[in-house]
Design a protein around this nucleic acid. Structure first.
Length: 137
RNA sequence: GCGGAAGGCCGGAUGGCCGCGACGUCGGGCAACCGGUGUCGAGGAAAGUCCGGACUCCAAAAAGUAACGGUGCCGGGUAACGCCCGGGCAGGGCAACCUGACGGAAAGCGCCACAGAAAUGAAACCGCCAACGGAGAGGUCGGGCAACCGAAACCGCCCGCGGGCAAGGGUGAAACGGUGGGGUAAGAGCCCACCGCGCCGCUGGCAACAGCGGCGGCAUGGCAAGCCCCACCGGGAGCAAUGCCAAAUAGGGAUCGCGUGUCGCAAGACAGGGCCGCUUUUGCCCCAGCAGAUCCGGGUUGGCAGCUAGAGCCUGCCGGGCAACCGGCGGGCAAGAGGAAUGGUCAUCGAACCGGAGCGAUUCGGGGAACAGAAUCCGGCUUACAGGCCUUCCGCGCAU
RNA sequence: GCUGCUGUAGCUCAGGGGUAGAGCACUCCCUUGGUAAGGGAGAGGUCCGGAGUUCAAAUCUCCGCAGCAGCA
């Protein structure tokens, strides 16, 4: 999985100083990445649970996002809809406020992810990001 | 107008902005890729995975057969089906129409609890009947004025013995044809009529079957979604199949099987052995310290193909057919993801539903769409589903 | 996606056409100074749901609904 591409040792691996630059979103696909994020810091909101894993310095650059909607969320329609709304929220928020070198995982919740007003969902994501970015040091 | 039956269709619409997936194309870049642009992008059930196929692998195929499984009125349609169409029969409905796992119980085995006399070649609990024997309280007969005594031909009762009968009773889901009449000691298909049943013949039909006639004289209780018999069909596994590339690990261990002939220098040939349950035929493999089978352990949880044009769907005309469907000519449509694309938002219009006004047509405000998301692909079935539209038909009521 | 298996008392399971059972747990009583163990008595069921076959279905058949497992 993800062979290390050995970024130049001189590069400062801090994406934390450039929040205004819009970053490309890469989708998380490997099971191992999800499991690693699941052990990391998290914050729960009404519409979702956000997990954030800071990859070690020297790893590949770029921000990655994963989405998880298990069978607990509902049937196939509810799961897909929840995933799409999370994806749209991530596109609007994380491209501006996300950080480089970080894996985010958004987990859908039963009933709320698919029905919450989108503005609320988006605002919650911003709040959750502040909580995770703030005290983490 | 009210109530109902059948078949078919739709199942939110239009537009703007920002995004997503696939393919094509243009530009930039050595390349990874980036940017622009065009086209296409969920369903009637995409679902359940219940049937049938295509396709792939198990080495391939044919014939027969055993076991196992499936189907089950008849005929047709189809690549095939447990599907569809038409017909028959049975049941339901006033009708339109609907429903039906609908072969065989006189090949065999098995089961039929409880109750009941008896649960299937009948038997006989209560009961019915005549004869015989007994008894002698009643009627009766004889005697006597009467109390009473006696008799046993008749009527009825009681007891006994061996017979005849199965109509009636009661039990049960079911009791060895039903109803009526004759008949008899009492009864009984014992006889007769009708109905049912069975057999035979004729007619109609490809057939299931129907109609008519004759005969039999009741023999044939139910269950085959119990075993079974008969007819027909079926090899197994599944796209996470399967093939290829790359990476990685210790090419590890255990069990089973063969242990090998003749000719030939050899190649090979012939025996022999093995290979989808078995047999046969064709075919393929083996002859070595090995190759084979099964299992355990270890590694990888990457990429590409399979992967979307096929018995395809829709439709116009013509032809065949009652129809399902088939044939011909023409037109149109047709997603291909892979942690898995259809989303977000705004505007306009909007069905159900809720509230107000009105006798009502209607109108004002609120509200903002059911079940549900392609995962190899087709044909069906089944299940879920707010609401709406169209066509045909039936019954009742009113008018003519 | 594909393929299997299982649903019976609070829990673990029997029963495979004829009145629903066992063990543990629960309630009450006995025993003990008290508790456990032991003994006795008792309560507890839409047999996952709906149709069908049958006189009769937890059992046989069909259609659903849940839960669990396996397969790259």
């Amino acid at each position: 999985m993800t062979p290390p591409q050995a970024s130049p040792p001189g590069t400062p691996a801090s994406g934390e100083t450039l929040p205004a630059v819009s970053l490309r979103l890469e989708t998380l696909k490997k099971r191992a990445d999800f499991q690693r994020a699941a052990r990391a810091r998290r914050v729960a909101m009404t519409g979702f649970i956000l997990q954030m894993y800071k990859r070690p310095d020297g790893d590949a650059q770029g921000m990655r996002v994963g989405y998880t909607c298990s069978k607990k969320v509902g049937n196939a329609v509810a799961r897909n809809r929840a995933k799409r709304r999370l994806r749209e929220a991530a596109r609007l928020v994380l491209t501006h406020q996300g950080r480089d070198g970080v894996d985010y995982v958004l987990i859908g919740r039963r009933d709320h992810t698919a029905t919450l007003p989108f503005d609320k969902l988006r605002a919650d994501l911003e709040t959750a990001l502040r909580k995770l970015h703030g005290p983490a040091r």
